[in-house]
């Protein structure tokens, strides 16, 4: 049992259930305890929005790459070695001066793990899932994003199969930045569509 951490209070029902399931599954040889630690390490430390940011930065710099992404995102993303679980069928959505894309999973929490890691709590929350499709502008306002009225907002509902990555608009004043400097401007929220890429002054 991994019970080294301290409890300030008696374990909750769900904590007990998770511990019970883990110990029974290991005992029966159904899961490998080392694989569990590896999975946690991968998604806590190694896979996250920094992956998607590299994809976006390259798309901004290299129009051939952008075309490959638009043509077959799963293949183009694989060029970075980002692939697999919960990203088997990727679609990229390119923001333009007239179209802003935003991604939700109204039924649960479908999210492109290989490029963004695990979803934040708000993405999985009832208010976001409910409101993203019916009132995207007020949702964006809660994230501090205001778009001009003539910008069309397209909301994409993810499924168990298809996962989306938004390519935010490249900020102005970034002509002289390298691909890796550009990647620092690409936030998680900008790739979900609830944010915009940062302006270069922010990171200087």
């Amino acid at each position: 049992m991994s019970s080294k951490h301290k409890h300030a209070h008696p374990p909750s029902e769900v904590e007990l259930k998770v511990k019970a399931l883990e110990s029974l599954l290991i005992e029966k040889g159904l899961i490998d305890p080392l694989a569990l630690d590896e999975l946690i390490d991968i998604y806590e430390h190694r896979v996250g929005p920094q992956n998607g940011a590299q994809v976006v930065a390259r798309a901004w710099c290299d129009s051939d790459y952008l075309h490959r992404l638009l043509d077959n995102a799963t293949e183009a993303i694989r060029e970075f070695g980002f692939e697999g679980r919960q990203g088997e069928d990727m679609v990229v959505l390119e923001n333009t001066p007239t179209v802003h894309n935003m991604v939700v999973c109204t039924l649960c929490s479908c999210y492109p793990w290989p490029v963004l890691g695990l979803p934040p709590v708000w993405y999985k929350s009832a208010p976001y899932r409910a409101r993203a499709v019916s009132e995207p502008r007020s949702v964006l306002a809660e994230f501090g994003v205001e778009l001009s009225e003539d910008v069309e907002i397209r909301v994409w509902d993810s499924t168990a199969e298809v996962r989306y990555l938004v390519i935010p608009m490249r900020p102005e004043g970034t002509e002289n930045l390298s691909e890796s400097e550009l990647a620092e401007l690409v936030t998680r929220d900008s790739m979900i569509g609830t944010g915009l890429a940062l302006s270069p002054e922010v990171i200087q």
Partner: peptide, 9 residues
């Protein structure tokens, strides 16, 4: 732990 056992299963 809940995440890892779910994915592993």
């Amino acid at each position: 732990r809940a995440f890892a056992i779910t994915v592993a299963c």
